[in-house]
Design a protein around this nucleic acid. Structure first.
Length: 617
DNA sequence: CCCCCCCC
């Protein structure tokens, strides 16, 4: 039998703190929040005497309903709750069920315990509830945070000192919660968290007026959250909040985070308000530090534009500060490009903007630079952009920094470097590194289908080294308009003239043009690709007009030309694009460039692939 | 309440 805590609901509603009341769930309703689209469970609570129809399950407990552990009739020991007064007149109080133990289950109508076979499960705290220890911020739990690295300067333990006037486990009169348990429906909380990132102050101006803001990222053992400080709060807290320091925070507004902009693993974000309290706090707590997921520069070729990556490398060269005018708003903006290299043998251009471009110390030589959260771009190859949320560290004291420093100093600086940026320019802008000219984004032919290239809205370009298996002779040549920039097909009028519909005129002559279909193959796959004129001439090793002569004269040499190219190997830059022909949609592949293979570069590229492959095993 | 991260 369960003894419900008679009278406890009345006390809770009156604002009295009640310890571990035993309550029963009488009703339960799934409500969809329009603001954040999240499911919430509204429950009716019963204490054996009165019923309160407005209880809400904290969303981190939703799984208990979804796994049918918590249901109508469940008896709970409510270990942690929040009674939020929504209005005084009429009185409206919502009780948020933050943490509880499911003691058992009783049919509300029978008022008797049921004899379900699995009832004993309910008499122990459920497995899930044990996970809710996550609410306590001091227990490292999630593997993702266990790999967090302890690299930024000080160790917590060394700066430990007694807390101010706060009783243990509280701050500003509020119990310390784990970040992952924060939600907009419960405002009596405090957290203890480490700042892992802090933006510069940014000003903005829009229809609502002018303003400024900064944001920080906070982490504890349960999760992470972004916090924003606008205007007065920006003035008040910006200097105090420092990267890698630990703070107590209470009384900030929580709202649904816009996932489009905030990549942190939290449905909510925090905004400081005029009630917000923040105090530095130096106690050792084994709070995770900033975590790094370093990416080798060679791996950037596999990253899409707008990805954010962490990289570490040596600044090989530094560009001057230049000024650009933004397209969108015609603002003048300073920028500076750094070429960064690492021991994967690759270089990439990283762009600093605004004040960061001006403040970068170019006299610093070739320091190690860490970019955490740099944005990947894919203009003429791959590049990186330093965003407002990117953390820059010069010569950080971490093992990876020493590794890349050692590599650079012991000959890496003079080795052949593949520049992933500036791929379509003949002169490498500032890196002084080897430029392999024209090609980036090397793929094997199976990747064409595997990666659904050309299936998107726009064309995909990639480079590949492939053999010509077969060059299709039929329809490979057509009679084209001899007009200067017109290559339209002409119709033989059989009166010695050739009609071009585009030019609307008859010509006394025509010129030959080529559209050559090739079956290309590498070790992985084969695919058809179309070569036009110049690229076809490279493949067949003959000028189109000469080939036309052979065709016109029915020379046996004509056929030979098409068989001689078989099993020749070239570097292709290919374009894949979806096309519709006779209601059939398929990816058409055409050659943008065809070049003989430079086997030294090709070998280097292969070595890189092998190295990359080995490292990823 | 921002959410731009730019240019070739």
């Amino acid at each position: 039998m369960f003894q419900l805590s008679k009278g406890s609901l009345k006390k809770i509603l009156d604002g009295t703190n009640v310890t571990d009341p035993i309550l029963q769930i009488l009703q339960m309703k799934n409500i969809q929040n329009n603001m954040d689209g999240m499911t919430r469970y509204k429950v009716s609570l019963f204490d054996g005497e009165t019923q309160h129809t407005f209880g809400i399950l904290a969303t981190q407990q939703n799984h208990l309903v979804e796994s049918n552990q918590l249901k109508i009739g469940s008896i709970i020991k409510l270990e942690e709750y929040a009674a939020n007064v929504l209005s005084k007149d009429p009185p409206k109080v919502v009780i948020i069920l933050l943490n509880f133990e499911i003691l058992g289950h009783m049919d509300p109508n029978q008022k008797q315990p049921t004899n379900q076979a699995n009832e004993s499960n309910f008499n122990e705290p459920s497995k899930h509830l044990q996970n809710n220890e996550n609410i306590e911020p001091n227990k490292p739990k999630q593997p993702q945070q266990e790999k967090a690295k302890n690299f930024f300067n000080k160790k917590d333990a060394e700066v430990e000192k007694p807390s101010s006037n706060n009783p243990p486990g509280t701050f500003n009169g509020f119990k310390i919660f784990g970040i992952s348990s924060l939600n907009p429906y419960q405002n009596k909380w405090s957290i203890k968290a480490r700042v892992t990132n802090k933006s510069a102050i940014r000003t903005y101006s829009n229809a609502r007026g002018e303003g400024k803001l900064f944001n920080i990222e906070l982490i504890d053992n349960t999760g992470e959250i972004r916090a924003n400080g606008f205007n007065e709060q920006c003035d008040k807290f910006y200097e105090m909040l420092q990267i890698d320091r630990v703070y107590h925070i209470s009384k900030a507004t929580l709202k649904t985070a816009n996932k489009q902009y905030c990549k942190l693993d939290n449905d909510y974000e925090m905004t400081f308000n005029n009630e917000t309290q923040i105090e530095p706090c130096d106690e050792a707590d084994n709070l995770p530090h900033m975590s790094l997921n370093l990416v080798k520069l060679s791996d950037l070729t596999n990253r899409a534009a707008n990805d954010f990556v962490d990289v570490i490398g040596v600044v090989k060269s530094v560009g001057d500060v230049t000024t650009i005018v933004t397209k969108a708003t015609n603002r003048e903006l300073k920028k500076r490009e750094l070429s960064i290299v690492d021991n994967s043998g690759c270089a990439v251009t990283a762009t600093l903007w605004g004040k960061q471009a001006e403040d970068y110390d170019a006299a610093d030589g070739n320091p190690v630079i860490l970019l955490k959260g740099a944005k990947v771009g894919d203009y003429n190859g791959k590049n990186l952009s330093v965003a407002s949320t990117t953390v820059i560290q010069i010569n950080p004291d971490i093992p990876e920094a020493h590794t890349v420093r050692g590599w650079f100093d012991q000959g890496g600086c003079d080795s052949e470097i593949q520049d992933l940026s500036n791929q379509n320019t003949m002169t490498s802008s500032n890196s002084g590194s080897a430029n392999i000219g024209g090609h980036s984004n090397w793929k094997f032919l199976d990747q064409l289908k595997d990666e659904k290239l050309g299936m998107g809205d726009k064309a995909d370009y990639f480079s590949t080294k492939a053999y010509v298996l077969y060059a299709k002779k039929d329809n490979s040549m057509y009679m084209a308009c001899p007009g200067e920039n017109c290559n339209k097909k002409v119709v033989d009028q059989n009166d010695g003239t050739y009609r071009c519909e585009k030019c609307s005129r008859n010509y006394p002559n025509f010129k030959w043009r080529m559209i050559l279909n090739l079956n290309l193959a590498d070790f992985a796959d084969s695919n058809w690709a179309t070569c036009f004129q110049e690229t076809a001439e490279t493949i067949l090793d003959i000028r189109t007009d000469e080939l036309g002569e052979l065709k016109s004269s029915n020379s046996p040499r004509f056929d030979e030309i098409f068989t001689e190219c078989a099993f020749k190997e070239f570097n292709f830059k290919l374009r894949a694009k979806m096309e519709t022909y006779n209601d059939e949609r398929r990816v058409k592949v055409s050659a943008v460039t065809v070049e003989p293979i430079d086997y030294v570069q090709s070998g280097r590229r292969m070595l890189q692939k092998i190295k990359q492959f080995a490292e990823n095993q």
